[in-house]
Design a binder for these strands. Structure first.
Lengths: 328, 328
DNA sequence: TTGTACGCGTTATCAA
DNA sequence: TTGATAACGCGTACAA
């Protein structure tokens, strides 16, 4: 493997000059530039990135935390981030926390050991107080999640609005008995906010909700199917259901169909995300502008790396959009 | 940021000894070990990974190529690989080729510039001759794809068998007019082999196929819907359809249902992959053992990195499995 | 416009 | 059992 030294020797110049050519410094004669380029090509030379990293104290690598990459929401987020990063010459290291606090913590070392220039968190398992100290080692951007105390850029969606417009849509369709079905993730503000939006819409319309119309802990298609089983055995079931994800909504619609119910006549269902599956099942849903969260988060990350300024809090709140299909 | 020098000073020892403690070399007194550990903790010291990489000439990082991470097949593959890698102390760099030759080529530089120890390819866009020279810089493992000339470990599925068992299943159900619907990716041997399996089953049963029962270029749900539109306008449509993916199969089933056709009475459809969507739509499908391809590929990769032997060809062929549901 | 010399933080070699 | 010293490959003051 050729080093910069070999190139210098072949070109009959010093390492410094070669380095200058590589890094496009001014004050190098065109002639020597050519000489260097020729030698580089001949030796099939490429700068060693470990040496560069050490010298420059930066890695041009960014770590992205997701719970699981198989979750379509997160894989879409990562897809956009990776492209955005590649465009600007950055690599992406994928970190799956599997919803586990200790996994998340162990990945934090990447920043401390200078394996990456920065961290983008798309989910947060630990208390912010666990994460905060690592800010000393590099920038952190939070994306999709929310934290009150984090002094970092936060890019997230207006989930209150999301809960509100989804619910309002159901109300406008004439349903009055509305149920609520979501996952209920620990620290997650997302679920919390959506619920507030849901209740706000209910209040405005002067509607009441029964306790038994609340279904928690639903994440998957299977959970959706189970939810329907519970629902159908209710004496007074809801007419319409607000759900926290397209998967759950799809499960409910599927189980309802199998049981001979008509959607939306017997039961209306609204999903969340506008995943490919939502189109397939013709689910009304609330679309999250994933591409725009992802690219904004990555943009803020690279900006933070380059500016080297101390981290400051900055909220970027993005709007959500109703997509109406035939499940409501 | 504390360095090994700082630790040495605080512990009143040499850098060498500190390094020995960090790397668990023998011949260090328990007492000095304690001294060092204490200093490390006090200074909140962590070895700088760039320096380590430079010195050791390895990165503990592996690049994984996928076309797009949003494709559920690949995200599942990556999910397993990342976990497997993390378990063994390796990081994963995600490279999306977007099915583009030049993207793929540009990522190859990662190996040459020593940013990663090795490459796992889950898809191949360029001719192998383009990739082969990079073997000089580190190991490459091919996973899910196939190449005749590649002198590297290859982990792939017996797609001939896949095409065969899927088709045979249809024949056993009594269908005699079988159609074939897949994507047709350039260099991909996958599609090629499945087709061979399909034809083999047909031959064995003495069945003929009409040209118009072949539908190409189908990848997405939407493609599946379009395929159904074409099919329904045929004078003599096939009774059953072998498809190359669950997405396509789902699109067909959905469009058929919307058009008032009964599945499987009017049209039977078999998918491929056994994705979550297949369960939702109750698609009969051919399951690919994704977890096992992924972990075997990663295992072979890490083995190659550690052994440092020259790359040799080695084929690992994994079996496929029928999953029967109600679409056939 | 070019070159000399030092340092980035580790680890491997050799000698003590 | 420990320590001094020389790499690993590169970039950049500083001097010329």
């Amino acid at each position: 493997m050729a080093t910069i030294q070999d190139v210098a020797k072949m070109a009959g110049l010093s390492r410094t000059t070669v380095s200058r050519v590589i890094n496009q410094h001014p004050y190098v004669t065109e002639e020597k530039k050519r000489l260097v380029s020729k030698a580089m090509k001949e030796l099939n030379y490429v700068p060693n990135s470990s040496a560069r990293r050490l010298r420059r104290q930066q890695t041009e690598t960014i770590a992205v935390y997701v719970p699981r990459i198989t979750n379509p929401f997160f894989s879409h987020l990562v897809e956009v981030m990776e492209k955005e990063a590649a465009k600007k010459g950055y690599q992406l290291i994928l970190c799956q926390t599997s919803y586990k606090k200790e996994q998340e913590r162990s990945f934090l070392e990447l920043l401390k050991t200078k394996q990456v220039d920065g961290l983008i968190l798309t989910s947060i398992e630990n208390d912010w107080s666990e994460i905060e100290p690592y800010l000393a080692y590099g920038p952190i951007v939070v994306c999709n999640e929310y934290s009150d105390s984090a002094q970092v850029p936060l890019v997230f969606l207006d989930q209150i609005e999301g809960g509100y417009i989804g619910t309002k849509h159901l109300i406008e369709q004439g349903y009055t008995k509305l149920g609520y079905c979501t996952g209920d993730h620990k620290s997650s503000r997302v679920a919390h906010d959506r619920r507030i939006g849901f209740l706000k819409a209910l209040n405005e319309a002067g509607l009441q909700m029964k306790d038994e119309w609340y279904f928690g802990g639903a994440y998957s298609v299977q959970d959706g199917k189970n939810t329907f089983e519970t629902l159908r055995n209710l004496e007074d079931p809801p007419q319409a259901l607000f759900t926290g994800s397209d998967e759950v909504a799809a499960g409910i619609v599927k189980a309802a169909g199998d049981a001979g119910w008509n959607v939306p006549q017997d039961l209306a269902v609204i999903g969340f995300d506008n995943q490919p599956l939502a189109e397939l099942m013709e689910l009304t849903t609330v679309e999250q502008p994933i591409e725009s969260i992802a690219s904004q988060a990555m943009g803020l990350m690279i900006e933070s790396i380059k500016s080297k300024r101390a981290s400051v809090r900055k909220e970027v709140i993005l709007p959500l959009k109703m997509i109406q299909r035939s499940s409501t």
